[in-house]
Structures are given as structure tokens and as C-alpha cells.
Simulated scan of single mutants.
Amino acid sequence: MRLLIPLLSVLLMSLRLLGTAVYPSGQINKPLNDTATFHHGFELGAKTFCTIWMTSQGEPREVAEYRNDHFQVTNEQFQASTVFMKSTLKIQNLTMNDSGIYDISCWYAPNPAKRRRVFKLTVYEPVQQPVIKTKCQCGYIDCNCTLHCQDPTNSSSAHWVILHNSKPVNNSAHKRTIWTLLGDTCGNIKYMCVLQNPADQKNASVGFWQLCSTSRYSEFLCMCWAYQKAVIIGIMTVIVAVVSILARFIFKKIKEAVLRKLRGYFPSWRTEVDNQNKEGRLGDMEMTSVKSKLKDNKAVLRKLRGYFPSWRTEVDNQNKECRMGDMEMASVKSQLLDNTG
């Protein structure tokens, strides 16, 4: 409110001057040691005359003037930091004393009408890096964590922004302290503390691993929390497999017990099964009988060969004929070799 009163006084004084055109004022917020740029947009030349005034705490002071195509700083405070160019006025290396209302007035000879621009500059202390303090109270199921965003200078506004995969999903405006569950932090969730003033902004963030390190959980349990979905899926798969095997085994046992019970009530089922077993045993006996008969037949044939020598003589004659044929072939081969020699 104190800054608005001198601004209104300057505007009223300017309106009293006949032939003066006042352009809309602008608000410029800059941090300490930064550069403020005022875009006045006036044409400068040999016939241009300009004055620059600054009002701070209700006291107007001349800053500089431009005449005869030359810019001259008339206030020692702005001697080394002010640059007046064709369309802009720059004040470099800002200090807290540079905050105020700047009035730039220009007119062109021989036309006496003035044109003016008014700017309000506010210089702020730079925002410090925020400090995040965390505290987690853990139970058997989950941890309830408190996150506090602390401003070392207590001069900036603070709020929290919740990020999922680096994208903001929630903005807790004007809250320095928030609460969350450790289990809800999994899945690329981050909590970003933002400190800001109209001229500057800084932030810091905390994620799952930082919160888990402040809890009583070990590194192994933190990994289980971080990959809880994969762990749950793995455990459920094992449980389903074990239950399936047990169910098959139990179903088989129940089926056998039911069949045994039913056989007691229905003797015909038992008789039918016994007949099938008997048929199976009879089939095995028949196969054994056939095998024994074949062995007996082979023995009989060997014995018959002993009683019928003609069978044996015939075989011996065939073997002799084969040996004679081999000898004749050898004799023919030797004669051919002698003839060729």
C-alpha cells in the first residue's frame, strides 16, 4: 500500500501537465544482483530530450537525462549500473535500494508534447535452497511419513507438488507440511517442495528411497516395498501352483474313497471289476502257455534232427558243394593271372 501511494501521486502530477501522453505502467520483479530491463520504446536522436526519475518511499530523485544525442547519469547511485539505449533502459547489478517507481519522459523538438512510461521495480532477496525434513512412524503394515518443507530465511512462500513419472499430479498450495504413507510412494512417485517469491524460485524433492531410509525398515524390506507388485505376483503364482497340486491330490483321494464306498453299496460293480481282473490274469496265463509251447517245439525239432540223419546229411552236402565251387573259382583266377603274366 505504501508503494501504491507514491505511484498514484506521480500519475496525478503527470496528468496535470498539458500535452503529456502517459503509457500504461508495468511491474518488474527481479532478484538481487540481477538486471532489470525497461522497454520504453521511444525514438532517440539529436532533437530528443528525456528525463528519468525514480520515486522511493515517497521521495522522487532524478536518475539520468538524455539530450543532444547523449545520455548522462545524474545520480551517483546509478552511475555504474544504468544503460540507456534506443528502446530500453537497463539497470544492472540490482540492489535492494533500486526498488521504486521509474518515470521515463521524452519529447521531441520542436513539439513540446511529452510521452511517458512508468515502471515499478521490486528487488527481492534470492530464494534459498529448501530443506526437507522427514519423519516416519512405522507399524507392521505400513509407515506414516511426515514431510516438512523448511525455508532457511523464512522469507518465501512454500508449497508441495506431487510428481508421478516427473509429471505433476497434485499441487498442495500454501502447505509446508504434508503426510503420506510409505506404501503410496512406490511407483515413481516424488514429493517436490517449492520455495518461491515473485522474482525467484527453487525446489527440492524426496522419493521412496529417501523416505524408506528414515524408517525402521532394512534395505531388503525397502526393496520389497519398492517392487511390491512383482513380489506379490510371484507369491501368488507359487500359492496358486501349490494349491493346484494339493487340489489334484485331494480330489484323487476323495474319488478313490467315494468309489470304495459305492462298491460296498453296489456289489455288481465289484463283481465286474473282479471279472476284469480275472480276464487279465487269464490272458497273462495264456501268453505264458504259448511261450512254453514254443520252447517245447524248438526242443522237439532239435531232438528230431538227431533221429533223422538225412536232414543233417543234406545240409552237409550243400556245404560241400559251396566249398567245391569256391575252389573252382580260385583255380580259374590263378590261370588267368598266369596267362596275363
Rank of each mutant, 00 (worst) to 15 (best):
M329S: 08
M287C: 06
P267M: 04
K261D: 12
N319T: 14
Q276Y: 11
Q318K: 14
G325V: 03
K295V: 08
P267F: 03
K293D: 09
R270F: 02
K298I: 05
V240T: 11
M236P: 00
N319C: 09
E328C: 04
R248A: 11
E272H: 08
I254G: 01
S331Y: 01
K303D: 14
K278R: 15
M285Q: 14
M329H: 05
K255H: 11
T288S: 09
C322E: 09
C322H: 04
K298E: 11
G283C: 07
T313Q: 10
E272V: 07
G234Q: 11
V231S: 07
E256K: 14
K278Q: 15
E256Y: 09
D274A: 13
D284A: 10
R270T: 15
M324W: 07
V243R: 03
R281V: 11
K303Y: 03
S331W: 01
K320W: 00
V273C: 07
K278W: 08
N277P: 00
L282G: 02
W269E: 13
E314N: 09
R281N: 13
S331H: 02
K295W: 01
S331D: 02
V240C: 05
V243W: 02
Q276L: 15
K320P: 02
P267A: 05
T288E: 06
K261Q: 11
F249T: 12
R281H: 11
K252I: 07
A330L: 09
K303L: 04
K278T: 15
I250S: 12
V315A: 15
V231W: 12
S292A: 14
W311N: 03
D296Q: 06
F266D: 14
N319L: 12
E328D: 15
G283E: 02
L304T: 09
G280E: 07
N277V: 06
I233A: 10
K278H: 13
L282K: 06
I250R: 10
E328V: 14
W269I: 15
S268V: 14
D274W: 00
N297M: 11
T237G: 02
V300K: 10
T237F: 04
L246W: 06
V238W: 04
V240E: 08
R270A: 07
R323F: 01
G264P: 01
E279N: 14
E256I: 13
